[in-house]
Simulated assay, not measured.
Amino acid sequence: MFSATFPKEIQRLAQDFLDNYIFLAVGRVGSTSENITQKIVWVSEDDKRSFLLDILNAAGLDRATEANKDDKMAMGVPPRREESLTLVFVETKKGADALEEFLYRHGYPVTSIHGDRSQREREDALRVFRSGQCPILVATAVAARGLDIPHVKHVINFDLPSDIEEYVHRIGRTGRMGNLGLATSFFNDKNRNMVRDLVELLQEAKQELPKWLEAIASEARFGGGGGRGRAGAKRFGGGFGSRDYRQADRNKGPHTAGPARPGGGFNSFGGAAPHFNHYGGYGGFSGSQGYNSYNTSGASGTDWWGGN
């Protein structure tokens, strides 16, 4: 069983079918790779579509740009290829259809996928997306898990999910297999319930933390609001599956829900995270032409299992 997040419910499922299994964690379970540059921007509901158009225009994903690719080649500018795909997440199936129609009417090669589509329609949408024929895919949470397309360069959370676990799965569609990726999320008052978990995740991954987002998190902390993930569990305290649930606190006895595996019940492979610099944003993902330039460094020496 493999997962970016491993809540206790899924661990219990493993125990139902496996005997004395090994819990193997690489890095921090439930966290994100530093290969993914995360950008959080404040966008009101009424401005989301125009903001999305600005991002797609900056990336040169409109049909007019594609039609002029021969001229660009003559000027020494490489055309857009299937190696630069954009995945846009929305909250509802109706919203996915509406946003696809909106982008199509504005001249963007786009397709969509959601739970009401037949298997054939889903396969067709993924085929034209992978090939670069439609380099923009609008999707609901149905595409947040199990979708392994190596050239997704940009994930856009047009609608943020309601919990941080879903956010981790969504942005994990980019930055795969050692590649760099960009994840942009539109945040507004509707998303205050996940602000504290989001801030913790950004800090953990050494990402840029907007001052306004930090201020909202502080308000939530002192005001008692702002959510706390599933069932109010502290992130990285076990709610995300950050440790083998059979493994009790080091100062306590074994967990009564299942036998503890000799040697601790899990193994952990460490090592420094990849280092990358000057990763561009919306302007073609390179250099200072983009929305911003980012500098990120390697992992800290933290013991993810609660030690020193």
Score class of each variant (00 low, 15 high):
Glu200Val: 05
Leu103Ile: 02
Leu24Ile: 13
Ile10His: 05
Ala143Ser: 06
Gln203Thr: 10
Ser50Met: 15
Ala299Pro: 04
Tyr291Cys: 11
Gly306Asp: 04
Leu201Cys: 04
Arg28Ala: 07
Asn20Ser: 12
Thr65Gln: 01
Gly258Glu: 12
Tyr245Lys: 06
Gln247Cys: 10
Arg105His: 09
Ile55Gly: 01
Trp305Met: 08
Arg80Pro: 06
Glu165Met: 07
Asn68Gln: 10
Ile136Ala: 00
Arg127Asp: 09
Arg196Leu: 03
Ala183Thr: 06
Asn191Phe: 05
Phe102Asp: 01
Leu209Asp: 00
Pro262Trp: 00
Arg170Cys: 02
Val41Gln: 13
Ala299Leu: 05
Leu13Val: 08
Tyr108Gly: 03
Ala183Asn: 07
Arg145Phe: 00
Glu121Gln: 08
Trp305Thr: 11
Phe2Asp: 06
Tyr291Ala: 15
Phe89Asn: 02
Met177Pro: 04
Asn267Glu: 10
Glu204Phe: 02
Val77Tyr: 02
Arg221Met: 12
Gly95Thr: 08
Val142Cys: 02
Gly298His: 10
Pro79Ile: 14
Asp71Glu: 11
Gly229Asp: 05
Ile171Gly: 08
Met177Asp: 07
Met1Trp: 07
Phe6Asp: 07
Lys206Ile: 06
Ser33Cys: 07
Glu34Asp: 13
His255Gly: 04
Glu100Ser: 07
Gly301Tyr: 13
Glu45Gln: 06
Phe276His: 14
Ser118Gly: 01
Lys153Ile: 06
Thr92Pro: 07
Phe102Tyr: 15
Glu82Gly: 13
Glu204Pro: 05
Glu208Trp: 10
Asp124Trp: 02
Gly271Ser: 09
Ala273Glu: 13
Ser44Asp: 13
Leu61Met: 07
Arg49Tyr: 07
His278Gly: 08
Asn277Val: 11
Trp305Tyr: 10
Phe222Val: 14
Asp124Thr: 00
Trp212Ala: 01
Ser218Gly: 05
Gly181Asn: 09
Ala25Lys: 05
Asn35Met: 15
Gln207Cys: 08
His151Cys: 13
Tyr167Leu: 10
Lys72His: 14
Phe187Gly: 08
Gly306Arg: 03
Val29Arg: 12
His154Thr: 14
Arg28Asn: 09
Tyr21Arg: 15
Lys39Gln: 14
Gly287Gln: 07
Gly307Ile: 02
Phe240Lys: 06
Asp303Pro: 08
Leu61Gly: 05
Ser118Val: 00
Phe285Ala: 12
Ala231Thr: 14
Pro161Val: 03
Val195Thr: 03
Thr92Gln: 14
Val26Lys: 05
Lys8Leu: 04
Phe276Ser: 13
Leu24Gly: 03
Leu137Pro: 01
Gly284Phe: 11
Arg81Glu: 13
Val90Tyr: 04
Asn179Thr: 15
Gly175Glu: 11
Arg235Met: 00
Ser31Met: 07
Ser112Gly: 08
Asp116Pro: 10
Met1Leu: 14
Phe23Ala: 01
Ala299Cys: 05
Gly239Glu: 03
Ala273Phe: 04
Gly132Glu: 04
Gly301Phe: 14
Asn188Gly: 06
Leu147Ala: 00
Met1Phe: 14
Phe276Lys: 11
Thr111His: 02
Arg196Ser: 00
Thr184Leu: 05
Leu160Pro: 10
Asn292Cys: 07
Ala14Cys: 10
Phe102Trp: 05
Asp244Cys: 05
Phe222Cys: 09
Ile136Trp: 01
Phe102Ile: 06
Leu160Arg: 09
